[in-house]
């Protein structure tokens, strides 16, 4: 199978004031189409940094990130923006635009990609139906519960038919019942639609739902197991 994401000897060093912090110290990773991968590790282990790099939100200090075979450090801002349209992000804090309705939020990435109004409206409704929120699509994020907001965020992440979904602590702000529903939704997307999933979490229970688990510690991958 083709690798959707490939990281080779990936290093990232931040400057925290005047102190350099080595967030990643040489990570090698290959994710193939249709995988459901959980990245597990305590805070400060470098898992969010890894996510930002394979989401093309940041550039590595050293090493290479290949997304669909393209080396991101060779791309300019515009090319990176184009690349990100093919990646579905789901954030811990949902990151919906508060003044837009659920449907408009789902439409937003399609508007950015330049889809026509009719097309994106139709697709947004389909996606909201998949995540089970069609009847609440005209509500604004503040009128939705945390679980519902995260489901809108997942619908939004799927809008541009991404090659993979990146989930950053997707249940971190949701109660456990809703968290299970979210994880079931993600599993269903992976199983029935073949969506590639990369999920960062510090929750062992959540990670055990994935097909493959990576454990990180101090900027390195210390364990890579198939469940």
């Amino acid at each position: 199978m083709a690798a959707v994401v490939e990281a080779v000897n990936l290093k990232k060093t931040y400057m925290l004031g005047k102190v350099p912090v080595e967030a990643l110290r040489g990570v090698n990773l290959k994710v193939e189409t249709g995988e459901f991968l959980a990245v597990l590790g305590p805070s400060g282990s470098g898992k969010s940094t890894l996510l930002n790099l394979i989401g093309a939100l940041d550039k590595p200090t050293d090493g290479t990130v290949l997304i669909d075979g393209v080396d991101i450090s060779r791309l300019n801002d515009n090319q990176l923006a184009n690349l990100r349209r093919g990646i579905g992000f789901v954030f811990q804090f949902f990151n919906l635009i508060p003044r837009l309705t659920a449907r408009q939020n789902v439409e937003l990435p399609m508007a950015i990609s330049g889809l026509s109004k009719d097309e994106r409206r139709k697709r947004a409704e389909e996606l909201l139906e998949i995540v089970g929120l069609k009847e609440r699509m005209n509500h604004k994020p503040t009128e939705l519960s945390g679980g519902e907001q995260q489901r809108v965020a997942i619908a939004r992440a799927l809008a541009n038919n991404p090659s993979f979904l990146l989930l950053d602590e997707p249940t971190g702000n949701i109660d456990s019942k809703n968290a299970m529903e979210i994880i079931q939704l993600v599993k269903r997307l992976n199983a029935s639609k073949g969506v590639t999933i990369i999920m960062v979490t510090h929750d062992q229970r959540l990670a055990s739902e994935a097909k493959r688990t990576l454990k990180m510690l101090d900027g390195l991958i210390v364990e890579d197991v198939m469940n």
């Binding site: 939100l57 515009n78 923006a81 184009n82 990100r84 635009i97 990435p109 950015i112 990609s113």
Partner: peptide
């Protein structure tokens, strides 16, 4: 600022 970050994560270009 955060909103701009979201827009960029969704693939919005600088000039947009």
């Amino acid at each position: 600022t955060r909103e701009i970050g979201i827009l960029k994560a969704l693939g919005m270009k600088n000039h947009t």
